[in-house]
Write a protein that binds this DNA or RNA. Sequence first.
DNA 1: ACTTTATGTAAAATATACTTGACATTCATT
DNA 2: AATGAATGTCAAGTATATTTTACATAAAGT
Lengths: 70, 70
Amino acid sequence: MKNLRLKLARMEKDMSQTELAKRVGVTRQTIGMVESGDYNPTLNLCIQICKELGKTLDDLFWEDNDNEMV
Amino acid sequence: MKNLRLKLARMEKDMSQTELAKRVGVTRQTIGMVESGDYNPTLNLCIQICKELGKTLDDLFWEDNDNEMV
DNA sequence: ACTTTATGTAAAATATACTTGACATTCATT
DNA sequence: AATGAATGTCAAGTATATTTTACATAAAGT
């Protein structure tokens, strides 16, 4: 399933896939696949993406962020 | 650098590398390399490890967990 | 209409995560 | 002293993440 949190975080920074890719040091296609989901990126790639977007791993890549029990 | 948080979380569960590996579905060597650091595991592997140890990605794989600014 | 920017997708090549099998060391137990 | 459990490491193989090149579509601007 798609990673909408990532896509949203990127758009909040007014960044295109191409620009995020350049900053992270991968290709545009790789960013596209991560956003499309059904993909298994490496930890370092996830971390770089998070840093560029000012988010943490849990923010963008940890499931069940929505229904967290207080 | 070594991932001491992971090693600690595993030992808190009284789990050997071999046992964690079996539960996660990888080999003992892979777990060893993740703990040794200087290694770039996939996101799915990290998530599986977190789930087995009752932790989140930020808990085990996000840097700067220590000096977080309030 | 034409060009540019952003994105989706696909096939083949390359880099690297992960496996397999094996040997070595340390520590606890008998 | 001998055995077994836990871990470190290494070399060669397999699976897959990522690149490269390319073509296609839609939206926005001139």
